[in-house]
Design a protein around this nucleic acid. Structure first.
Length: 526
DNA sequence: ACTATAATGACTGATTAA
DNA sequence: TTAATCAGTCATTATAGT
């Protein structure tokens, strides 16, 4: 089975390095070893040569995945599919009996908090009817407690609020919407803090060291299955930043962190456009219903022409209410390019400073010898700090005296900023980042915040060797956290040229994350 | 040379229609 | 159950402007 060749078993790094030294890409080496096993060197070499193939064979992911299906088994394919059965709740396998009960109620449309309370109070033997009755009476009681408000973090459209309040009282099983919009709340977000209370990790994945891996949620098919297979078969947690700030950002996370007792950093960022840009409120037409922005990306294009076009259209129609089709045109394009109102009938993209604020970075974080374009690119590629901090918050108790962090693909230091804002001291940080601009930004933050720890900067993950890791671990005793999001260029939907999948030129650096994670584990006696 | 801008669809998942 | 439709996307590259 495919599961025996990777995942729980430790890879043979000497063997991997042997072929890497010959010039084969790391991802290809892993793929070949995964397929052919570690025993027969020449067989691996043949496979690699076949992969490399004649020069004209493109390395598009479609080609590679289809060719591997031809030569190899159906079993490999089906095992990948088994990882993520077509189920509404992808975590159902991991549930305890209690979790299952809660999940059933949540899927019926009840708030997770209420569902949990009901299961705890009524016990596991309770009938569904009994549980729903409990929730109903509890909700009625809570309506009297006016002071019991949702936290300021309220999600823009809580699922249990989409039912008219009048029908809430007499909700019966038959009324309940079983399928509701899929929401990316992972194991929980501040407005749904205990969506899932427990999960089981494979033994091979238990920390230390902890690891935290991120990438775009909507990648080409099979991408997350592959990444999951390489990272201990842990199922990804998909979370949208819209629950943490005023802009959407759908990302997946594979990590082995505890998920109980997460908390938010303060100050909390504004969660709506109106809170984030109070000064722009006066320019906002009443017929633009947006309360949150779409994903902040690395570049906007054509916004000047569009802005003029919009202005002309709006000014050509009298009064405050343009015709429906004009409204529709304006809204569609504003959403598409993520524009905000900055003047009368005038729209514009966000400024870098505004992006910094929404993504949870300090003001002027990206200052320092960079062009405007550099800033957009750096920020568009970055973490949303509040969300990452929420996930990492569980480490605060465990590491009150600080952490040693291996930060791969550091970018502008989203992970470090998150830890810093959590109040977790950074003892030793090995930061791996290839972009000179990003390194400058991160270094100036490091100085600005008077970090007392040591910072080691590396330019390229591909240059990290077993020796280097060994020296770091000898020097400061090991890493507590390996964190990073590998390049999304070949995965992101916005890429029209080279959305090649995980084996694309840049996104294949994922395999180095995997490689280095396992080297660290190996060295730390895991 | 460097910087800003515009042009360039396809794919994914969710929703709705058939 | 399946097909059509909808909305949204950590982007790359050529060209214009400075």
């Amino acid at each position: 089975m495919a599961s025996s060749s990777t995942g729980s078993s430790k890879p043979n790094f000497k063997l991997v390095d042997h072929f890497v030294a010959m010039g084969f890409p790391v991802w290809m080496v892993y793929k070949a070893i995964e397929k052919k096993g570690e025993d027969d060197k020449s067989l691996i070499l043949d496979t690699l040569l076949a992969y490399m193939g004649p020069e004209n064979s493109p390395s598009k992911y479609q080609c590679i995945s289809s060719s591997s299906e031809e030569s190899s088994s159906e079993s490999e394919r089906s095992s990948a599919n088994d990882l993520f059965p077509d189920d509404d709740s992808p975590w159902i396998d991991d549930f305890t009996a209690k979790d299952k009960m809660v999940a059933i109620l949540v899927n019926m449309g009840y708030p997770a908090v209420d569902a949990l309370e009901a299961v705890e109070k009524c016990g596991l033997q309770a009938e569904i009817m009994e549980l729903t009755d409990y929730i109903y009476t509890a909700q009625m009681e809570k309506q009297h407690d006016v002071q019991f408000q949702e936290p300021a973090y309220a999600c823009p459209k809580p699922p249990h609020d989409d039912l008219p309040s009048s029908s809430r009282g007499k909700r019966k099983l038959c009324d309940i919407r079983v399928s509701r919009p899929k929401e990316m709340i992972g194991f929980g977000v501040p407005s749904h803090p205990r969506h899932i209370v427990e999960r089981r990790l494979p033994k091979s994945a238990l920390g230390p060291p902890y690891f935290y891996y991120e990438n775009v949620a909507y990648s080409p098919k099979g991408t997350w299955e592959t990444m999951s297979r390489f990272l201990d078969e842990i199922k990804p947690e998909f979370v949208d930043s819209k629950y943490f700030c005023a802009a959407a950002r759908k990302r997946g996370y594979i990590h082995n962190l505890p998920i109980l007792n997460r908390f938010c950093i303060s100050p909390k960022p504004p969660c709506t456009i109106q809170e984030a840009f109070p000064d722009n409120k006066k320019w906002w037409p009443y017929w633009d219903p947006r309360t949150q922005l779409n994903c902040l990306v690395t570049v906007v294009s054509g916004f000047k022409l569009l802005s003029e076009d919009i202005q002309k259209r709006l000014e050509s129609c009298p009064g405050d209410t343009p015709p429906k089709e004009v409204q529709e045109y304006v809204l569609v394009n504003c959403r598409k390019q993520n524009l905000i109102w900055v003047g009368k009938n005038k729209v514009a993209p966000l400024e870098p400073e505004e992006m910094e604020m929404i993504l949870g970075f300090p003001k002027n974080h990206t200052r320092g010898g960079t062009t405007r374009l550099d800033k957009f690119k750096a920020l568009g590629n970055s973490f949303q700090v509040d969300k990452v901090a929420y996930h990492l918050s569980v480490l605060k108790k465990e590491f009150p005296y600080g952490m040693n962090v291996l930060s791969l693909f550091s970018g502008i230091g989203g992970a470090e900023v998150a830890l810093h804002r959590l109040g977790i001291p950074l003892k030793h940080v090995v930061s791996v980042e290839s972009s000179k601009v990003n390194k400058n930004i991160f270094r100036s933050w490091w100085k600005e915040t008077n970090q007392r720890g040591t910072l080691i900067e590396i330019g390229d993950v591909q240059h990290i060797t077993i020796d280097m890791v060994g020296q770091w671990i000898k020097a400061f005793g090991g890493f507590d956290l390996i964190i990073g999001g590998s390049p999304c260029n070949n995965l992101a939907g916005g890429n029209r040229v080279s959305r090649n999948g995980l084996d694309g030129e840049l996104s294949s650096l994922f395999y180095h994350y995997y490689r280095i994670l396992h080297i660290v584990r190996d060295m730390m006696g895991r």
